[in-house]
Amino acid sequence: MKPAIVISARDNVATALDALEPGRVLEFGAVSITVGEPIPRGHKVALRAIHAGEAILKYGSAIGTATAEISAGSHVHTHNVASDRGRGDRGEAEGVPAPRLAEPPEERT
């Protein structure tokens, strides 16, 4: 079994498929990182340095924003990532993307 998986080439995190110990070297194509701290199974590890304020990318899409400087090989989770959606505590209006269109389907009769 692979120790971790990167879902999209755009992603800046990998998902651990097993618990990862510090010092373990992970290779994803040309990218090689050394695990810097224990990563529980199913949790995310940074593929490169991510600055505070930068988007965390998984599935090729933004899943939140870094709230601290994150080094390659670090654990990426609720302690250093904030969600940008459903944040009633922030009080501001949030933008949502405009829909694009596909082919119309057949109506069920």
Binding site: H43, S61, G64, H77, V81
Partner: peptide, 13 residues
């Protein structure tokens, strides 16, 4: 969250 999902965006995707 214990299982590794950090945000609603990640869960939704």
């Amino acid at each position: 969250i214990r299982g590794g999902l950090t945000t609603i965006e990640e869960k939704s995707l």
